[in-house]
Write a protein that binds this DNA or RNA. Structure first.
Lengths: 164, 164
DNA sequence: GACTGATATGTAAGTCGTTACATGTCAAAT
DNA sequence: ATTTGACATGTAACGACTTACATATCAGTC
């Protein structure tokens, strides 16, 4: 369900675009928040067309189809944005590793936390190079905060494990 | 892939258990980190049995089957814990809402962020009542940190929106 | 003129996860 | 005796997502 919201959001924010453009937009601006490849995007655009959320505005070279949002699409997007509550389901592989840390001996556990730390530090560095337009300002701040909090947890946890 | 890790982890940490027990364990101790219902757990245990990761130790009343971890299961769990790097794919509906905030007018945006804040405050309160055994200490700290960082972001964002 | 690489769009098979349906046991209370 | 509620296990259909495969255009260069 959220994939179509993301697509509607990009089309509303950046104007009409092709499936290819949207795939690139996902990679560039949205990928720290939601991910989808072209194999998911193309069929979804077709479904969204038959659901009346977008229309093919024009067909250009190389079979390129330019989609734009319909009033109904705008309505659906607005309704979701204003009405959606954070989903309760969480699936965090890092959280799972943290959960199971007590099954490891001290040095192994420290090494695991250290790697989690390194990976997140790398991601934080990558985020800073993210281009940002009208959209994405707030999401960037949220993402940075989330990653920083993992780094803090990692530092505290390593210190805690070293004391034991 | 991680579902079996979670199941192996619970079986290693808490000893042999039935599918039903594992389902309850998920609800009680693991649900802020990973989620799965019995409809996913029962078939997965069957697959894990045929893959040699767990065995049916005994069959009790009401067709209750007690699973325990095989040496191979222990090996697979250990390998994952020590070798797994955080996955790069992220899908956060809250992040998506944050990303698209600029599409809303000021007051709507503030209301959305306020609701995100409220939901996370509620989750934080729920986490404090989570029972914790040997496992889960570190995951709890991680979860609390994550949620706190959302609350901070929400406060800053609301202030920012109000200034505009 | 042939090759290469970026552009551009799609299908198919398989895995993972959700929702709805279906069944049966056992203990305790009424 | 029967009803209720917790215990206990499953299947089936569907939707979301991934990976691998397949194809074709166009611009630039060798």
């Amino acid at each position: 369900m959220s994939l179509r919201i993301a697509l509607l959001g990009l089309l509303c924010g950046k104007g009409p675009a092709s499936g290819y453009d949207l795939t690139k937009s996902f990679e560039r601006s949205l990928n720290h928040v939601w991910q989808a490849g072209h194999t998911q995007i193309y069929p979804e655009l077709v479904k969204m067309t038959s659901d009346g959320l977008v229309t093919v505005e024009s067909e250009g070279a190389r079979g390129r189809k330019i989609y734009s949002v319909t009033p109904e699409g705008r309505r659906v997007l607005h309704e979701w944005l204003v009405g959606h509550s954070p989903s309760l389901t969480v699936r965090s592989d890092t959280g799972l590793q943290a959960f199971l840390l007590p099954l490891l001996d001290r040095d192994e556990a420290i090494a695991v936390v250290q790697r989690i730390r390194d990976c997140h530090a790398e991601r934080l560095a990558a985020l800073d190079f993210q281009p940002r337009g009208v959209l994405g300002r707030y999401a960037l701040a949220l993402g940075v905060g989330q990653i920083r909090s993992v780094l803090e947890w990692a530092d505290e946890t390593i210190a805690d494990l070293q004391r034991s």
